[in-house]
Design a protein around this nucleic acid. Structure first.
Lengths: 221, 221
DNA sequence: GTCAATAGCCTTGTATACAAGAATTAGAAT
DNA sequence: ATTCTAATTCTTGTATACAAGGCTATTGAC
């Protein structure tokens, strides 16, 4: 029973935030969480600090931790940066990928094809993560891999929304095809452009979604 | 006396790491640090966790915290990513800068010129930070500003070494001039390219430096 | 009736005590 | 003498106790 408690708490709370069990703006009471998970406040505090470092919550002195709501604009900005980083990863991957990278990328790509054809958005969501991880790995830049993985994780909940949009899965898969071609043919510039576009479009989609939602909210209100 | 203790500890220890008072690989004893700063272990632990989140130290379960030595290759990778992010910031700045951004950028640029002419590397080091911050701010992307600032901070110690290199300050200032021209003329692509190059060259310089050092070490050993 | 001020409670921040695992040292055996 | 094992000690991980600041509710005054 090592430091795993903190890790477990961190994952549980993070999951709770991502799945909206803890809503944005909600105050996270240390004692309440401690009771809920059957531990003392100490590990809870440490888990909260980690989440604060990730950016999922905000800790104001003497006023506790609240779940951060990034806001549509901020999320769009995050997609913009993600697009740039993924583009870089793609560019490096095109230049540096090994046979093993190639195999892994094609395997993930095949999985995506399968779940896209089955129209299974949950599975596609998962396979899509593998696909992007394969690209990060092929970049052979340890630091870039870390940065991409962290941001990818951070954007997870907002990406998930989008696969529900009509035809998005098929479109996504077609974009993947172009990305794979560019990387495996060693065309760094094309790989960068394709990946950047592939991610940026998600930011756009997200904006559209928000616009639609706030419009309907305005109509309702 | 709020949560400031943790912040203070974090800054002090971070500073200690950056200034090599705590050498890479050194083990950071919680109790020792607590005594040294006249506090209990609790805030020390929390400060250490924050540093761990930043990436300056590594905490292994039940085995304490050690100062991370990124290693030359990892540092080079970090400069690579920084180059990309700064390029992005420059690109956005070229498209989005306001009159206020323009004023701030020119002011920082003028300061750099002054300290470069005075051959004052300490001041130039500081003014250079202002210059880059001005670019980040002009990008008007809050998330990008945060990411750039964090990585810039993380690379601070390695950048500092380089200004000592002969003529680096003058060269750096000339590059700044090209960057300013590109941004203020609204040429996003040029701004991106210039900034990317400006940062990437620092990674190269760092590699050269390391190569030189390890060579002389090999000769000595 | 409403607003402001004060008091009490509730939550966070810090310290200390307790538990458990890892490292080191000492002793014994080969 | 060297190596392996065991025990002790030292450090980390967790819990609880104590301190301090903010929030809320209640009461009084306008």
């Amino acid at each position: 029973m090592a430091e795993n408690i903190v890790q477990r708490l961190r994952d549980e709370i993070e999951n709770g935030i991502v799945t909206n069990q803890f809503s944005p703006g909600e105050r996270l009471d240390e004692m309440h969480l401690a009771k809920q998970f059957g531990v003392s406040r100490t590990p809870v505090r440490e888990a909260l600090m980690q989440l604060s470092a990730i950016g999922l919550i905000e800790i104001r002195p003497r006023r506790g931790a609240v779940v951060v709501e990034p806001g549509p604009h901020r999320i769009y900005e995050m997609f913009e940066v993600m697009a740039e980083l993924e583009g870089m990863a793609g560019s490096l991957a095109a230049r540096r990928h090994t046979d093993a990278d190639r195999t892994a990328l094609l395997a993930a790509h095949a999985k995506c094809e399968k779940s896209a054809e089955a129209d299974d958005s949950d599975t596609y969501y998962y396979d899509n993560e593998l696909f992007h991880q394969a690209i990060y790995a092929a970049s052979h830049s340890g630091f870039l891999i870390e940065q991409c993985t962290a941001l990818h994780r951070r954007l997870r909940p907002y990406r998930r929304l989008q696969l529900r949009v009509r035809n998005r899965m098929k479109t996504s898969f077609n974009e993947h095809q172009a990305i794979v071609d560019a990387i495996l043919s060693g065309d760094a510039d094309a790989a960068r452009a394709q990946l950047r576009q592939h991610i940026a479009v998600q930011g756009d989609r997200f904006s559209d979604l928000v616009a639609t939602l706030s419009e309907s909210k305005a109509l309702l209100g």
